[in-house]
């Protein structure tokens, strides 16, 4: 395990997107509760994996932590600073410490700029160095992510998906951040390329002591890369534990169902694997179920689950879960 200092503390973070009606006078008729009262910590130098199915609010959580979306309520602390309070210039300065790697390498690079311009833009925005120094730094960054500095004058469309993702990584590293949110950085890539990018991220973490929030829906990839793993369902974090603990002793019924879906790369065992098949669909986040959000699909649900929202508590050292049955 990494050193125990907390880098990011997320406290009851909530992000609701309003649903409006009306053409000229817009009324709020409801809200999509994308993220609802989520609390966790990210420790210095660790990788926190965040898994969950599509639409459960993983990406929104990452973006809200970085203040790309302003939270509806709740706090995000970076060290001692409360990011939700920061505005304008202060927030801009803070951005040097945290960066993001995006999911779609085809959409995350401006097609009209050269690689050199894309990677040096963070330096320009924060007025670091002069043109020549920036140019040198860009070449250094390109080497760092395994690209030839000769590619500095080329445009994004001349690169493959994996190379583009490396450019995205170089851009994120340009300001020497401590904390990087990786928003499904490999899900848009070929399987053969995924490993390369993940290895690159691991190498960079080791070299620069980076802290990652690694968002993914590929459970085995998260198992590989993360130190601790959080599981999200319908805007809530339902379970958070160290990697081995979570994968060997999942406590929440949703986590158990999720993990049972992972194929085992051994035909003799794979045949005996017990799948927990969940019934029904994920409810709409605009109108989440009362009580525990998982209860309509939970095979173990009892009366209290339908009425009372389970408390987020630490049931074993470093193992948090929100379930009445645990």
């Amino acid at each position: 395990m990494s050193e125990n200092g907390t880098l990011i503390k997320v406290d009851k973070l909530t992000k609701h997107f309003p649903i409006t009606r009306g053409i000229i006078i817009q009324r709020e008729v409801g809200a999509v509760q994308a993220v609802d009262k989520v609390s966790f910590e990210i420790r210095k130098g660790e990788t926190l994996g965040l898994v969950g199915e599509s639409g459960c609010g993983k990406s929104t959580t990452g973006r809200t932590i970085l203040q790309l979306y302003r939270p509806t309520s709740g706090k995000v602390y970076y060290g001692d600073a409360d990011l939700t309070e920061l505005k304008g210039e202060e927030l801009r300065r803070m951005r040097r410490n945290m960066q993001m790697i995006f999911q779609d390498p085809y959409a995350s690079l401006n097609p009209r700029l050269t690689v050199g311009n894309i990677v040096s833009e963070p330096l320009e925005v924060h007025s670091i160095g002069n043109a020549r120094e920036r140019r040198e730094r860009v070449q250094e960054l390109l080497r760092l992510v395994g690209l030839s500095p000769h590619m500095i004058n080329r445009y994004p469309h001349e690169f493959s998906g994996g190379q583009r993702q490396r450019i995205g990584v170089a851009r994120a590293l340009a300001l020497q951040p401590e904390f990087i949110v990786c928003d499904e950085p490999i899900s848009a890539l070929d399987v053969s390329i995924q490993a390369q990018v993940v290895n690159l991220l691991e190498e960079l973490q080791e070299t620069f002591g980076l802290t990652y929030l690694f968002i993914a829906h590929d459970l085995s990839m998260v198992r590989h890369i993360s130190d601790r793993t959080a599981v999200m369902y319908l805007g809530k974090v339902v379970e958070l534990a160290t990697r081995n603990e979570l994968y060997t002793h999942p406590l929440h019924p949703y986590t158990q169902a999720l993990l049972s879906a992972v194929p085992i790369p051994d035909p003799s065992k794979e045949g005996k694997r017990q799948r927990i098949i969940l019934e029904g669909d994920v409810p709409s986040p605009a109108n989440p179920p009362k009580g525990c959000r998982f209860h309509p699909r939970c095979p173990l649900a009892i009366d209290i689950c339908r009425e009372v929202e389970p408390e987020w508590r630490e049931v074993a050292p470093d193992h948090w879960v929100a379930c009445h049955l645990v």
Binding site: R63, A107, N110, P122, V125
Partner: peptide
Amino acid sequence: KEFIEAAHMIGASNSR
């Protein structure tokens, strides 16, 4: 698009 988000992320101004 994500490249606009990326520009926000590095702290670029609206006019930029």
